[in-house]
Design a protein around this nucleic acid. Structure first.
Lengths: 247, 247
DNA sequence: AGTACACCTCTTGTATACAAGCAGTCCCGA
DNA sequence: TCGGGACTGCTTGTATACAAGAGGTGTACT
């Protein structure tokens, strides 16, 4: 699970602890399911069912769903139902665009002599990426730490939550394919970006970074060409599920 | 007020109407108050008081506050209180960075022959800006329509919600100053950006756009230099207000 | 005077009850 | 056979009751 969701630096309070409310737990869990496609695009979500399953009342469920709706991961139709958002090609493209814009622009703001402590963390991160064999989840955690680290290098770590929000839609689209491109391709790209950055600055790192980000998006676009039905436009409102089962 | 908040194109459903729930009304109202500084940074928000004032129960109030918390406009401390977020200099800088990155990058994606209908709208928008005398709110609406229009020109209208979220923090910071820079300065910059774009493409428009966006940020930075106390870091948790008043 | 401590009132978090509405089903009638 | 309308189950929206904790306040004791 990507535990970096709430790494919003502005929501830290330093003096008070994380305050793990039930709502937060539900939010994290549902977000994980949506991004991980345990809950497929268009799937209906019943507040009552979720409440029963997760062992809490409707209140924290509702509040978590509201947060997910703000993230664009679910859609709430009053008096009708709540549904996992469809994977919309336009939305995925917008997410890619935003992420690319922010991450590329941040390269220009990285100081000539970057924070050595952060650089050390990044190198260490890459070293650990190289040790990952096939654990995709583990790799994703490291991948997120790496990209967030680059933003922090530019002193723009505060934009990470926005990037993560966009990334959620990209990750979901990517998982539709299930294809297992070798993880080491990405690790190599990460290493190349970092070295180019430290050697030649933003000018040299930029094209590599763009290529790296585009590699992910190109995977998605290939998938879309192959299986367009997965990217049905989200305009069609969902149908109510048939429940029945008086058991 | 800027009514463009819910212009998220993905949340449209075409078939169902906007569904104006009470929660939405409360959210819009509180957001307006926070950005308009009717509710100053650090101000305490009591769910009970708001419920009484706005004539609804705690439920829609809570849910609206949760949405505002996700926007970073308020902070909720469990069992302690809810407070309007401080205007944090780092956060404002991050918002500026994100907005700049997205809006500048979008220029590169504007087609050589842009949608003539959208161009007409943009020209019309500028014409109306020129007619605005001193109505700041009216100007803000046109300003947002203009910037959103440019994004749509690049077929990246879907990123507008993210830009608006960042812009909220910028606007709030800007209002701390209350200074009335002539609106026509901005109108002129808008016109110059659009003309440069249509004449010479992204290459010519980019520096003008950057200058325009920076002009706003520079105002904020000047204000910060003059009145640093307004930008107190948000780490310090607020103090509980004294209520008393047995009346 | 200073300090420890019980208290008391506020806060948000959670659970539950009720309201309102959409939509599929089923039955009845033409 | 086909159409229409009441019915019935669900859905989310809102209101309210209760739980649990944080922290200011005042008092009593040293």
């Amino acid at each position: 699970m990507t535990a970096t969701t709430d790494s919003n630096p502005y929501n830290r309070t330093m003096s008070t602890r994380p305050a793990r409310t039930s709502r937060r737990t539900v939010y994290d869990e549902l977000r994980r399911r949506v991004i991980g496609l345990d809950l497929g695009p268009g799937a209906p979500l019943s507040e009552n069912e979720l409440a029963a399953e997760l062992g809490v009342s409707r209140t924290p469920i509702r509040e978590a769903l509201i947060m997910l709706a703000q993230d664009g991961l679910v859609q709430v139709f009053p008096k009708v139902g709540t549904f996992v958002s469809r994977v919309d090609a336009q939305r995925v493209a917008d997410a890619q665009f935003l992420r690319e814009a922010v991450e590329l622009a941040s390269l220009d703001d990285i100081p000539a002599v970057p924070d050595p402590e952060l650089v050390r963390e990044l190198r260490d991160n890459i070293a650990r990426q190289e040790l990952v064999e096939a654990d995709v989840d583990q790799f994703f955690v490291l991948d997120e730490q790496f990209h967030q680290g680059l933003l922090r290098l530019a002193n723009h770590g505060g934009t990470w939550p926005s990037v993560v929000a966009a990334k959620a839609h990209l990750d979901r689209a990517r998982r539709l394919g299930l294809h297992d491109r070798p993880l080491h391709d990405f690790t190599l790209q990460h290493a190349q970006v970092l070295e180019a950055l430290l050697e030649g600055g933003a000018a040299q790192a930029r094209p590599l970074m763009r290529a790296h980000l585009r590699a992910v998006f190109d995977d998605i676009e290939r998938l879309r060409a192959r299986s367009p039905e997965l990217f049905a436009p989200s305009v069609g409102q969902p149908t109510r599920r048939n429940i029945a089962v008086w058991e």
